[in-house]
Amino acid sequence: MDDLQAWQYIATALIFVWTGFVRSGLGFGGAALGLPLLLLVVDDALIWLPLIGIHLLFFSSITVSSRIHAVNWPYLKKALGIMIIPMLIGVFGLLTLPPEWVVVFVYLTTLFYAFCYLFKFQIRGGNPWVDNTLLISGAYAAGVSLIGAPLIVAVFARHVTIEQLRNTLFVLWFILVVIKLSVLLWAGIDFWWFHHLWLLPCAALGHIVGLKLHERLMAGDSATFKQIIGGALVLICIVGLLR
């Protein structure tokens, strides 16, 4: 991060604006829709995940602090009991797998999400077995690269009311990211603390815009929005995999 070229710093700033917008606008997906772009700037997930994680902790705590009453705590506790172990397995996979394997995992997983968005295929839970499979898969993906949100949201959306969904998800992300970052800190991964000074304002700009558009997106524009970014993500993932 300390020896990037000018275009890489500019691209990083714009991408963090985007991740802040997606995170607050949809309530999920900041990492899933931002990490593939960041890997085009520097193809090492361990550089970006601490930065994304700290931002998620910061903005999720701000968003939920005044809405803590609108969290579905019973279902959150139940889901966490299913997700903790695969989440930890994913984190240790991030630390032990070759970096290029992690990059390919990110692009292939994101490519799956992109096709779902592009063709308006909605990932759905259906019964306890399907729900548990999605939660376990999402938790593992979150452990490896923080991109398990679409799988997890598919289950939470069936069990949590729309009024409580975003706040419940933000608390879930907060807990999972605290666990992930604790392991990375223990492993001695560089958190690039200085770079938060200029990246946090970028993410804050996107966060504010996302908050203003959240109600509109949830009211019916989200499908078209996801379809557009799905098409863009397909191109991004193909470019990333070819590299």
Rank of each mutant, 00 (worst) to 15 (best):
M1D: 09
D2N: 14
Y9R: 02
T12R: 03
V17D: 02
W18I: 04
G20T: 09
G27W: 06
L33R: 07
G34M: 09
L37R: 07
L39H: 13
V42L: 13
D43R: 10
D44C: 04
L49Y: 02
L51E: 03
L51V: 12
L51Y: 07
G53F: 13
L56F: 01
L56E: 12
F58I: 14
F59C: 05
F59I: 04
I62S: 12
V64K: 00
R67I: 00
H69I: 07
W73Q: 08
I84A: 14
I84F: 15
P86V: 03
M87L: 15
M87T: 11
F92S: 10
L95D: 03
L97C: 08
P98Y: 09
P98W: 10
P99Q: 11
F105H: 03
L108G: 07
L111N: 08
F121E: 00
G126S: 08
P128H: 08
V130M: 13
T133Y: 12
A141V: 00
V144A: 01
S145R: 00
A149I: 11
L151W: 01
L151V: 00
A157D: 06
R158P: 01
R158F: 03
T161D: 12
T161Y: 01
I162L: 09
E163T: 11
Q164P: 02
L165D: 11
T168Y: 06
W173Y: 12
F174G: 04
S182H: 05
V183M: 04
V183N: 04
V183R: 02
L185W: 05
G188M: 04
H195R: 05
L197I: 10
W198Y: 15
L199P: 10
C202I: 04
V209N: 05
V209F: 14
G220I: 07
G220P: 14
G220Q: 13
S222H: 13
F225V: 08
F225L: 08
K226Q: 13
L233Y: 12
V234L: 02
V234Q: 01
L242A: 14
